[in-house]
Structures are given as C-alpha cells and as structure tokens.
Amino acid sequence: MKKTLIALAAVVATGAAFAQSSVTIDGAVDLGYVKPIGSKDARLDATNGANQIRFLGTEDLGGGLKAHFTLAQRFSPESGGNDGTTFARPTFQGESTVGLSGGFGAVKLGRALTAFQAPVNATDPWGTLQQASTAVLTSGYFTDKENNADAAGLGRTDAIHYSSPNFSGFSAAVSLGLKQHANSPAPLPATTKNLMGLWASYASGPLYVGGGMEQNRQDDQITAFLGTYNLGFMTVGGGFSQLDLAVGNDRKAWNIMAVAPMGAVVIKAGYGQVKDDVTGAKISKKLGLGVDYMLSKRTKVYASYGNEGARTTDKTGYDIGIRHTF
C-alpha cells in the first residue's frame, strides 16, 4: 500500500510538472508562380523566409518567471531543402534561442533577428516576403557581414537579446553580439567591434512609432525611424534610414506605404528610394503593388508586382501564390 501511494504521488507530481510546461508548433507554407525581379523566366518558388516551421516551448517556473525556447526552421517547399535552395542555409535559419521572461521583460540567448532588424521593416506592406517588397531601409547593410558570402547572416546573429515590458505603450529592446563568436575569423581583426542593436517604440490605438540603431562587428552603423497610422479604412506609414559604412559611401533611404482592407480583399502599395549620401545619386528606387484575398484568417491567395530601378535600368518581377499559416 505504501509503495502504491508513493507511486501515485510520483504520477501526480509528474502530471503537475507537465501541466506547467508546453510545446507548440506553428509556421507558414507559401508557394506560387514567381518571376523574380531581374529574371527573364518565371518558376514555382517563394521568397526566402516565407516558409518556416517553429517549435516554441515554455515552462512556468513560478513567481512569474518562465523559461522558453524557439527553434525556427526555414525551408523551400519547391525543393524540400533548407530555405534558399541555392544558398546552403543552416538548420534553424529562422531562430534558435533559449531564455527567461518575467516582470523584468525577456532575455534570450542565441541566433535571432536583432532588436533593430526585427521591427525595421514595419513600413513594408509585404514584410520582405514578395516581389513587391519595398524593404529598402537596410539596403547595403548587413548585421552579420561575415556570413554574407553564403547569404546566411543578414539580420540574424548570435547575441544576447533583451526586450522590456510595455510601459503605457512604450517599450524597448537591445541586442549585444560579442566580437568573438562561433564564425569569427582567426586571428580576429583588431578593428572588430561588439555588435550592438537598439530599438524603442510607442504604440497606442492606431498609432505606432519606432526608432533605433545598430552597429555591426565591422563598424558599419545604421539608424532608422518609422511610423504607421490606422485611419480605419486604410493604414499608412513611412520610414527613413541613414547608413554610415566603414568602407564605401554612406546611404540614405526612405519608404512609404498604404494598406487598404476591403472585406476579404486587401490592397497594398509601397514606394522606396535609396540614395548615395556623398554624390546624391539615386542608387535604387522600388515601386510595389499587390492584392491579397483572404480565404480565411489563416489562408490567402495573393498577387504582387514590383518595379525596381537601379540608376538607369528598370527591372520588374511578380508573383501569384497561396499562403497558409498554422
């Protein structure tokens, strides 16, 4: 009888532990008929980053403290391979972090979008995921330039990430990436810096404004400010950025956007420009137009068109596809 009671107590204790922990799975699958900007031919494809499956875990440690992890695997459904079929992307390209959260905010360690890179594309109606994308604010800048050769770095890096609680609409985030990291060259160049990213924002009702800066390990620096406002029948917004390069001419960029929902139909438009801050020459301009048709809250069909000009040449691209989130 005693052994039975001990065993029962162990089962109850185990059940309580499981009740305080959870793992969820979500993600998106996106595929369509795509003619990439500058390409002569169309193909069955999706923009890098459009497809991923995420594993999110959390454990209630008591006293308002929680442990959590995120593992996000990006993939290419047209090939079945890792995201970016031709780029040999790493496993868990989307994110691989572990951390703690509570009344103090949240801290996570690992590879993720930095405090700056996560919100900086808020004024792109397509979130960088379609040919119409007008995400020009970070043009010419790389958070993890050492990994740019295989297109694996971009806005993600191994770092310590902190996000604050929300104080009456105000919030802030910071990322710190040490100069010595997993992919550091040997020997480490004397000019290598610690990576630092900052972002602060205010959101209240229809208004969102935010701004921040980032310095990468090669001492390139970028500053950006943006805002959006929901007018009820339409959301409008715009952003501006200044890029100061350690090597090469500095840049200025700006974009504007409008998103108008009409029942199940969503009309999108955006425009952006990038200029050489020294010569004043226009490096590129981008016009994007698109429409989504919401079949449900989680499934839509879409079409978008992008026209990109680089100095004297114009290139176009388009996509027609379906996106399902789960």
Rank of each mutant, 00 (worst) to 15 (best):
P206M: 03
H161W: 00
G84R: 01
N121D: 12
Q131E: 15
F170W: 13
T223Y: 09
V265N: 00
I320N: 09
I25T: 08
M1L: 14
K145A: 08
R311P: 07
A172I: 04
A28I: 03
Q130Y: 14
A253G: 09
S168Y: 12
L207I: 03
P261G: 05
K179E: 01
I160M: 12
T325R: 09
L71D: 12
M1V: 13
V34K: 04
V266Y: 03
V301A: 15
G110R: 02
S21D: 11
P125A: 02
G49T: 04
L198C: 01
A190R: 11
T47Q: 12
G105K: 06
L65K: 05
T24F: 05
R156C: 01
G94F: 04
S296D: 14
K108Q: 15
Y271I: 03
G280F: 12
G290F: 08
E59G: 07
T235F: 01
A42E: 13
A13M: 11
R54N: 14
S171D: 15
A149F: 11
L137R: 07
A88P: 08
I222H: 05
G103V: 08
S201E: 15
A50S: 15
L71Y: 12
G309A: 15
V23G: 06
N166E: 15
F75S: 06
A310L: 14
Y271A: 06
A17V: 12
K286G: 07
S284G: 13
Q180W: 14
K35N: 13
D150H: 06
S296K: 11
G317V: 02
N148F: 10
P119I: 01
T312C: 07
Y271E: 03
L100S: 08
G81N: 12
A281R: 06
K300I: 07
S304C: 05
G49Q: 00
V266C: 08
D277Q: 10
M1D: 00
Q221A: 09
T91F: 15
S22T: 10
A159G: 02
V34T: 07
F55R: 00
A16H: 14
A16W: 15
S22L: 12
K252F: 08
K179L: 07
A16T: 05
V174Q: 04
S175V: 03
R217S: 03
R156D: 02
K275Y: 13
L198G: 02
V29S: 11
M213R: 04
A88V: 00
V278D: 10
Q180Y: 14
L178S: 00
V23D: 06
P187H: 13
Y305K: 01
T228W: 01
L295A: 11
L5R: 14
I320W: 03
E308F: 15
G57S: 07
L129H: 00
M196R: 08
D220Y: 03
V259I: 05
T313D: 00
D244K: 10
Y208E: 12
K3N: 13
P119A: 10
L113I: 07
D150A: 01
A224M: 00
T325S: 13
L56T: 12
